[in-house]
Simulated assay, not measured.
Amino acid sequence: MPATAEAVRAFRERLALPGLIDVHTHFMPERVLAKVWDHFDAVGPLTGVAWPITYRHEEEERVALLRDFGVIAFTSMLYPHKPAMAAWLNSWAADFAARTPDCLHTATFFPEDGVAAYVRQAVEGGARVFKAHLQVGGYDPNDERLDPVWGLLAEAGIPIVVHCGSGPVPGPYTGPGPVGRLLARHPRLPLVVAHMGMPEYADFLDLADRYREVRLDTTMAFTDFAERLTGFPAGDRGRLADLGDRILLGTDFPNIPYPYEHQLDALDRLGLGDDWLRAVCHDNAARLFGLRGPGPA
Results as ranks from 00 to 15, higher is better:
Val49Leu: 14
Ala285Asn: 03
Thr100Asp: 07
Glu59Gly: 07
Leu249Trp: 00
His133Gln: 15
Tyr201Asp: 02
Phe109Leu: 11
Ala94Trp: 06
Leu249Arg: 00
Arg67Gly: 13
Pro2Trp: 01
Leu270Pro: 01
Thr4Met: 08
Gly125Glu: 09
Lys35Ile: 13
Thr251Asp: 03
Ile72Asp: 01
Leu291Ile: 15
Ala86Asn: 04
Leu78Ser: 04
Leu249Asn: 00
Trp150Ala: 04
Thr218Gly: 05
Pro45Lys: 05
Leu134Lys: 03
Val169Met: 08
Arg237Val: 15
Ala127Tyr: 00
Phe27Arg: 02
Pro187His: 05
Leu264Asp: 02
Gly238Ile: 10
Trp150Phe: 13
Arg228Gln: 14
Ala87Thr: 05
Ala73Trp: 01
Asp236Glu: 11
Ile256Cys: 02
Pro83Phe: 05
Val71Met: 05
Phe130Val: 09
Leu205Ile: 12
Pro254Arg: 03
Ile21Thr: 06
Pro2Gly: 12
Glu112Val: 10
Arg239His: 12
Ala94Glu: 10
Gly171Asn: 06
Gly151Thr: 13
Pro296Thr: 06
Glu144Val: 15
Arg12Gly: 13
Ala286Cys: 14
Trp150Ile: 06
Leu243Gln: 07
Asp203His: 06
Arg31Ser: 15
Pro18Glu: 02
Pro101Gly: 13
Phe204Gly: 01
Ala10Thr: 15
Leu182Ile: 11
Leu249Phe: 07
Ala107Cys: 14
Leu248Ser: 01
Ala42Pro: 05
Pro168Trp: 03
Val280Thr: 06
Leu291Ser: 01
Pro254Leu: 07
Phe130Tyr: 08
Val149Asp: 00
Lys35Val: 14
Arg99Tyr: 06
Met196Ser: 03
Ala86Gly: 11
Val49Gly: 09
Gly250Tyr: 00
Phe110Ala: 05
Ser91Cys: 13
Asp206Ser: 10
Leu17Ser: 08
Pro294His: 08
Thr108Lys: 03
Val179Trp: 00
Ala285Leu: 07
Gln263Pro: 01
Arg228Ala: 12
Asp252Gln: 11
Gly293Ala: 07
Asp102Gly: 11
Ala97Met: 08
Gly48Trp: 04
